[in-house]
Nucleic acid binder design. Structure first.
Lengths: 330, 330
DNA sequence: GTGAAAGCGCTAACAG
DNA sequence: CTGTTAGCGCTTTCAC
């Protein structure tokens, strides 16, 4: 391993000067810098990031805490965050919050300069993590609806607006018997989507008492199950699932039973995940900008790390209605 | 921040002893350990992992380098690796190899103790990374077919065997006009699958000259495109796509054209990704144990990190035929 | 503009 | 079993 000291010896300058060349060239004579750079090049010097971190207190790493890393749902978010980090030469350590020790260990071990925390429902653990961050003045950005009590920047998508658009679309096409399949009752996204959907229906003059709402869990399996119990007798002519996965399960059931989509039942989802377009029939859904969410969140923490300013604002990202063949259009 | 030294002062023992309690309690008097632990608890001490890494030379982190982190294809692999790492209190830094600087920077900056590298085709960059690892004697495990020249442990799935099973299944059901859609010509997995498929057909007495093979790129879009150019005139009664995504595109095209699956065309894929079961019709495919791949690879590097033994063997994991309704069964 | 020297918080010989 | 003493490789005052 080539150390800073080796470069110093080789170039004839001190470690301090070499360090300066690496970190802030402006404070060093151009000629000196040139010589030192040549030396680094010659020896193939690479800074030891661990040593730098210990010495400087900056780790050039941020943690991205997700409910579950291992789901396709967050892939674009992760990509967005990664791209933003790369530009700043930061590393991203992605962890599932579901693994309790891991996330807290990370927080206590001085491995990262900041956190991005995604949550979809209130949880003690996340609450604790967050309090911890704030206590230590560690920069943290929320992805999702912020918990009331604290102030930290948050990035949210316009769930209400998206579902509202879907409601207007449903109403415009005269769907009469509508089934809404939500996520778990404590899922904040799902609840916002439900709220927006009801709002939109109401605005369109749809009699809300005719809307049937059931609780799901955002899974394909549950979507299938609910379709089985609610759609076999053709008592609905449209279903809005609060996420695409659930809709995927619904489509499977309907296809299995040869219930024609969208002639007999229109189906819509939320997310516009990568497979939505390739389902049969292609799924009408609400697109949310996952890549941007990740990118903006990362940009935000990096800014906070740089400036150490509190900056407690909320960024709301737009959603978009994507109409495909799973919905009957008049 | 509470440091080791604070615990030492508080408990009245030396830093060394406190360190021992943390790392290898066996060498310390039980009573002493108890006192020190109480002190740590009281002060809320958390080891600074950066300092530990610099001092010990071990980082308790391994890098997982994937062609593209941000695809659902690797989610289970990532999960498997993560679970294995967690048990050993290791962190995983997951990076896309496609980002050139990132991966090499990681390798040169002493941030990780070992590497897991997944590749699906030969590339200069991976070759360079690998040579680098070997030169530095950094533990590294391959996921995929090893490049000939080097020896490092590798984990591969039985692509040949899986595709062979599919061929037998095709032959058993008397498919006569078969289309094979591969990945890119240099994709090692795809080529093994093609090889196994041909092998299996041959074994079953299928006249290989009747097999039509086209090159795809593992994408849904390309699958759709190839279906459009090859399946519109019903000149095939079965297609085997070398991955599920391609099959997904094929299904979409056939459904759009109302070509009946499997009555007119049987379709099969490879991977058994999470959506395979939920496509229409549910997709016949070959399951590969992605979770296990990640878990075994991580276990393997951790072992190498512990023992610093070379250990140049190859692990081959089995694949399994999953028959679903996209294929006509006699 | 450059160098000397003091750490960052921890581990790891080496003594005792 | 426990303490002393050097560092790990880098950054960062503080002088010059």
């Amino acid at each position: 391993m080539i150390r800073l000291e080796d470069v110093a010896k080789d170039s004839g300058f001190s470690r301090a000067t070499v360090s300066r060349v690496i970190n802030d060239e402006s404070k060093v004579h151009p000629e000196t810098a040139k010589l030192i750079k040549a030396s680094m090049e010659k020896l193939g010097y690479r800074p030891n990031l661990i040593a730098r971190a210990l010495s400087s207190g900056r780790n050039n790493a941020v943690a991205l805490l997700l409910p579950d890393v291992t789901t396709f749902y967050y892939t674009n978010l992760i990509r967005g965050a990664g791209d933003a980090a790369e530009d700043a030469h930061y590393h991203v350590i992605t962890k599932s919050i579901s693994k309790p020790n891991q996330a807290e260990e990370l927080m206590n071990s001085n491995l990262v300069d900041g956190f991005i925390i995604r949550h979809s429902s209130f949880s003690e653990r996340i609450d604790r993590l967050l309090k911890n961050c704030i206590k230590k003045k560690t920069p943290v950005v929320f992805i999702g609806k912020p918990f009331n009590e604290y102030t930290c920047p948050s990035i949210v998508v316009d769930n209400v607006g998206g579902a509202r658009k879907m409601a207007h679309f449903f109403a415009r096409n005269n769907y009469r018997r509508i089934l809404f399949i939500g996520g778990r009752h404590d899922n904040l996204d799902s609840n916002d989507r439900k709220f927006g959907f009801r709002l939109g229906l109401q605005e369109s003059g749809f009699p809300l008492q005719d809307l049937v709402e059931v609780e799901g869990d955002f899974s394909r399996e549950r979507g299938y199950e609910i379709a089985r119990t609610h759609l076999s007798d053709r008592s609905f002519d449209a279903v809005f699932a609060a996420n695409d996965e659930t809709a995927m399960g619904v489509l499977l059931y309907l296809n299995e039973r040869s219930i024609r989509i969208p002639e007999e039942v229109s189906v819509a989802g939320f997310d516009d995940t990568f497979f939505a377009e390739y389902l049969w029939p292609p799924l009408t859904t609400i697109r949310q900008p996952m890549y941007d969410i990740g990118h903006i969140a990362m940009t935000q923490v990096l800014k906070m790390i740089g400036e150490s300013s509190p900056n407690g604002n909320e960024t709301i990202l737009p959603t978009e209605l994507i109409v495909r063949r799973s919905c009957k259009v008049q």
